[in-house]
């Protein structure tokens, strides 16, 4: 078991749900993103999803698209993700990399996995890879102690639910809505049932993301999921202060504290 599974089990034993925060590496700079991720851990994020910016992010809404575009424009490279992973694990939180497949494919899946583990990372979340895609990642993960998080959606059929939950380790990522990443006014219906279906299909742990914005959302999701995943609402803290990283990080800390209270049921 990796640090990711250990931490999720430990948090469950505390009687609460985990807060998982996403930020893309390289936004607003590699150094700035490392500072922001570290601050997020200090302010109460339990696990960090380190995003690897990609030129064609079909699963992402505008906030993360623009951040990724900015990160690439300033020259962010694949290897920068390991710098961020190391900083996050040094700060005391498990790190998982969220990446579309092509950057990993070009870097070399074996090399990527080895360097991720060497940096202290626990695993990967692959939004455009399903267990039956034949991408070759499963063979890489099978020979290493590395988690592969797959996604399930409201439209996932029973057959695919079983396949996906059996193939995932660490946790299963349940998408709370049919759509792309981004802040929404409310958490949609049927998400608790989706989490339940994933558990019945053998998911080790189920965390919920997409659309989570407020402490109230976090508390609602925390009542039935093992973890609450927040991305765009955190990225926006930095995006709202384009020329002032200190102010962006202060906003990020405040938002993280709000969400951390949410997963503990304090709204």
């Amino acid at each position: 078991m990796t640090a990711l599974g250990d931490r999720l089990d430990q948090i469950k034993a505390e009687g609460r749900s985990a807060l998982i925060g996403y930020l893309p590496v390289g936004y607003p700079s590699v150094e700035g993103s490392v500072r922001a991720m570290t601050a997020m851990v200090e302010a109460g994020v339990d696990i960090v999803e380190v995003g690897l910016p990609y030129s064609d992010p079909v699963m992402d809404g505008e906030t993360i698209q623009l951040a990724a575009e900015a990160a690439l424009a300033t020259g962010t490279r694949v290897a920068d993700v390991f710098t961020a992973v190391k900083a996050v694990t040094d700060a005391g939180a498990p790190a998982v990399v969220m990446s579309y497949f092509n950057p990993i494919l070009q870097y070399g899946p074996d090399r990527f996995a080895d360097e991720l583990l060497a940096a202290g990372g626990s695993g990967v979340i692959l939004p455009d890879i399903t267990p039956d895609s034949g991408a070759g990642w499963a063979e890489v993960a099978a020979t290493r102690d590395i988690d592969t998080v797959h996604l399930v959606a409201l439209t996932t059929t029973p057959e695919r639910m079983h396949l996906t939950c059996q193939a995932s380790s660490g946790f299963v990522y349940a998408a709370a809505l049919m759509g792309v990443t981004g802040e929404r006014a409310s958490i949609g219906e049927g998400v608790d049932a989706l989490v339940e279906r994933a558990r019945e299909a053998g998911a080790p742990r189920v965390c919920v993301g997409l659309g989570v914005k407020t402490a109230a959302h976090a508390a609602q999701v925390a009542s039935y999921a093992d973890g609450v995943i927040v991305g765009s609402a955190l990225v926006r803290c930095l995006a709202d202060h384009p020329d002032d990283l200190d102010a962006g990080i202060a906003a990020l800390r405040a938002k993280t504290e709000e969400l951390a209270a949410g997963v503990r049921g304090h709204v």
Partner: peptide
């Protein structure tokens, strides 16, 4: 779905039901 090593279906799970 494959033509030699090319092709396949590399997209989010949310679209798999629709593609199927």
């Amino acid at each position: 779905p494959f033509f030699g090593q090319f092709g396949g279906r590399f997209l989010p799970e949310a679209l798999m039901a629709a593609l199927d």
